[in-house]
Structures are given as structure tokens and as C-alpha cells.
């Protein structure tokens, strides 16, 4: 291996990363987000706050970069948008991409973040010591650090709506989108109690459930018959293999994964927004 090769594709050293690396996967949860129908309404973000016990930090802390939103709507103005501002911005819901070869995992000094057998990038709060290496190594900037003990100052009636299926985090730990793991585990338990495997559509993340336009599709990308797998296949997006990727030929095939060139193998596919050229 030449040094050039290492620089170009250091991730090739990972053990069969495309096939799952050290993991034998039961499921690989994934998402498809259709940006064409996303209106940027923030319902997904709000649902995430309600589902995952996220604190509302307020304007001052937000400006300091201490926001705790696991899911944020990013706004973009490309050149055409600037020319025709009445068309509005482009929106992109951004959450943890649950990378197959996550950059946050190898840098954790205490292995508080690791890969689960169902393809999720887990964060174990009790093991986390708050070194924040993971956040600094995340190319998507989707890891959020608890700078304060929000559970102590949770506004009075709202503490009654905390979700008991997920921990309320204390200060000093990192947290991020979990693909609503509590829902996945509940569905998994239910399926196992009935001696079957999880059916497609049985698990819905809070954001997918709340999206008024149905832009977010969640499911198992290992199951070829799931809605999300069909979307991935339709738009010719597949895991790994980024070097042999050809430029998109067909305008109908709008699928892409963010920072695919970093070869972190994200589990979220975005469908490009279609805009008429004026």
C-alpha cells in the first residue's frame, strides 16, 4: 500500500467494511428522505424533541453552539434561489447518518460509541466520559454535548411528558439521533414475543411519523422488500463501493448520500430536490 493509496482510501483498511466489517448484521436500519416534498416545516425536529427527551436550550445557549436538537433543518440558497428568492430556500433535514463505517466510533477513548448488530451507531450515556472527540470527528456535526443538567430545571408540567423508554441525560455526556432505538427495541420485543421477525413499516421513527408530507421513509435496508430498500434500489444508491460510483445519468435517479466521498457509508439516502430552470 502506497502512502497515496492510504490517503485516498484509508478506509479500505477496515475489515470488509462494505460487507459489515466485524459485524454480522441482523438488520441495517436506514432512511430515505425525499427533499422534493420536504417543506422545511420542522415537524420532524419537534417530534424528535418530544420523543427523545431533548431539552430546549434557549436562544443564548443556541448561539454559543450548545443546541441539543438531534434533528435540524438546514437551509440552503443556491445560485438560482438567490436569483429568484420568491422560490424560497432548499431544506435538508440533518440527523445522525448512522454511518456503517462511522468516524466517531474509533476515536472514542472509552468505547461509549459503538456499532450495534442492527447497523446503528450507538451512544452509551453511562459509559461516556465527555471527551467530545466523537463530535469533533463527525463530518456531519450531528453529535450534541450536554453542557448543563437540564433534568434539574425541566419546566414543571413538561417533566410529565418525558419518555420513560429513553434515559434523561445528565451533563457531561454526548448524545445524538438514535433512529428512535426505543421504538425499534419495542417492535423487536413484540415481534419476538410473537415468534416472527419485524415486518416492514412496523417501526417508524418519530420524525417519519410526524412528517406531514411523508418525506421520510424508514426501514430495514437489508430486507430487499422493504419500502426503503426499494427506494434505494430505484435511485441506484447502495452501501459501500463509492469508488466505482458513476455520475448520475438519468434525471429520475435523484438519490445521493451526503459526503459519500468520505466513504463513511451513511445509512440515510437523500433524494435531490427537483427545480425547474426558469
Amino acid at each position: 500500500m502506497s502512502f497515496k493509496n492510504i490517503l485516498e482510501n484509508w478506509s479500505a483498511f477496515r475489515k470488509d467494511a462494505e460487507a459489515g466489517g466485524h459485524h454480522k448484521y441482523d438488520h441495517r436500519w436506514g432512511m430515505a428522505i425525499n427533499l422534493d416534498v420536504c417543506t422545511g416545516c420542522n415537524a420532524c425536529s419537534t417530534a424528535c424533541y418530544a420523543e427523545n427527551n431533548l431539552p430546549v436550550v434557549g436562544k443564548e445557549r443556541f448561539e454559543k453552539g450548545q443546541a441539543m436538537h438531534w434533528m435540524r433543518i438546514e437551509r440552503f440558497w443556491d445560485d438560482a434561489d438567490k436569483q429568484y428568492p420568491e422560490r424560497g430556500a432548499s431544506y435538508l433535514p440533518m440527523m445522525c447518518q448512522q454511518c456503517g463505517a462511522a468516524t466517531c466510533e474509533p476515536v472514542c477513548p472509552v468505547a461509549a460509541t459503538y456499532h450495534t448488530p442492527d447497523g446503528l451507531n450507538a451512544q452509551v450515556y453511562n459509559r461516556c466520559i465527555g471527551s467530545r472527540y466523537c463530535s469533533n470527528n463527525c463530518p456531519f456535526r450531528v453529535r450534541y454535548f450536554n453542557f448543563y443538567s437540564y433534568y434539574e430545571t425541566w419546566a414543571e408540567p413538561l417533566n410529565q411528558q418525558l419518555n420513560p423508554d429513553i434515559s434523561v441525560r445528565d451533563k457531561g455526556v454526548m448524545e445524538k439521533c438514535t433512529f428512535c432505538v426505543q421504538r425499534i427495541r419495542t417492535a423487536n420485543d413484540k415481534a419476538k414475543m410473537e415468534n416472527r421477525s419485524i415486518a416492514d413499516g412496523e417501526v417508524q421513527t418519530a420524525c417519519a411519523q410526524a412528517c406531514p408530507t411523508g418525506a421520510i421513509v424508514f426501514g430495514d435496508t437489508m430486507d430487499p422488500n422493504s419500502a426503503v430498500s426499494k427506494l434505494w434500489a430505484k435511485h441506484e444508491v447502495k452501501r459501500g463501493d463509492y469508488l466505482s460510483k458513476k455520475p448520475k445519468q438519468h434525471p429520475e435517479k435523484r438519490g445521493y448520500r451526503i459526503f459519500e466521498e468520505l466513504n463513511v457509508d451513511p445509512s440515510v439516502m437523500y433524494l435531490e430536490r427537483v427545480r425547474e430552470e426558469i
Binding site: T116, A122, R127, T178
Partner: peptide, 8 residues
């Protein structure tokens, strides 16, 4: 043996 089975 998965952490996220019991802790989440």
C-alpha cells in the same frame, strides 16, 4: 450482549 439492548 449488545449495550443498547438494556441501555438506551
Amino acid at each position: 450482549g449488545d449495550c443498547w439492548k438494556c441501555h438506551k
